[in-house]
């Protein structure tokens, strides 16, 4: 069985719940005492798919305006972008569109995109409907998920499974042109398990000129 390793960047406006979602996934708990991210935070996690193992290195970026110019340092080497917006704030959904344009402009290689509408528990305050979001997701070749970090019903898990599956597909599709996506067969991966990955910006792109973002995985919709 193959083990692959990839980098994930989480992008989205301030306060949409990026940190909550990743914390929910990693700790399976809801942590009320989270403050705004300062700079960026780094997580790793392993996901077992039926097809194989995926090791994710995740950068949770800060949405505050003052950190905006640092985002390229994190998305430049990413294989997956989780684009998170707040279902109760239409402006945060609009911001996703400028993120996608920025990614298209600055990232040459193929990237898995996962669109995440968070705070689905706030049903009555909702201003972005599922239809609109999922249409937009299709138009950029992303899968679409709705999550609630407060009362999770499996949506959070589905986001990370989609990221892992997307990476897996990517590794099978374009073997030669992968950038910073590492594929190991199981034995090598054990041997190399602790060699050092590169820093956010030190790795140079092995450019794959296609801008065909996206994965062709059917979205793991939650109940």
């Amino acid at each position: 069985m193959k083990t692959i390793e990839g980098k994930v960047v989480i992008l989205g406006a301030q306060g949409v719940g990026k940190t909550m979602v990743i914390c929910r996934y990693i700790t399976k708990m809801f942590n009320r005492r989270i403050s705004p991210t300062i700079g960026a935070a780094f997580y790793t996690c392993n996901i077992n798919l039926e097809r194989g193992k995926v090791k994710l290195q995740i950068w949770d970026t800060a949405g505050q305006e003052r950190f905006r110019s640092m985002a390229p340092m994190y998305y430049r080497n990413a294989n997956v972008a989780l684009l998170v917006f707040d279902l109760t704030k239409h402006s945060s959904f609009n911001e996703i569109k400028s993120w996608v344009m920025e990614l298209k402009r600055n990232v040459d290689k193929t990237m898995v995109l996962v669109l995440v509408g968070n705070k689905s528990d706030l049903v009555s305050q909702r201003t972005v409907d599922a239809e609109e979001a999922s249409q937009y997701a299709t138009s950029i070749g992303a899968s679409y998920h709705e999550t609630s970090a407060v009362c999770d019903d499996g949506g959070v898990e589905s986001v990370f499974v989609a990221a892992a599956a997307g990476l897996y597909d990517l590794s099978e599709e374009n073997h030669e042109h992968l950038n910073s996506l590492r594929i190991n067969d199981s034995i090598r991966s054990i041997l190399n398990s602790d060699d050092q990955p590169a820093s956010p910006s030190s790795e140079d792109c092995l450019a794959d000129r296609s801008i065909a973002h996206g994965i062709h995985e059917k979205p793991h919709m939650c109940c």
């Binding site: 406006a13 301030q14 306060g15 305006e65 905006r68 110019s69 640092m70 985002a71 390229p72 340092m73 430049r76 704030k89 402006s91 945060s92 609009n94 911001e95 400028s98 993120w99 344009m101 920025e102 402009r105 600055n106 910006s201 030190s202």
Partner: peptide
């Protein structure tokens, strides 16, 4: 020196209307 972060060519997105 390694090249520094690509500066986004994109104009910065407007901050959300209702800054929290």
């Amino acid at each position: 020196p390694t090249p520094t972060a690509v500066s986004p060519t994109e104009p910065k997105p407007e901050p959300p209307d209702d800054l929290e």
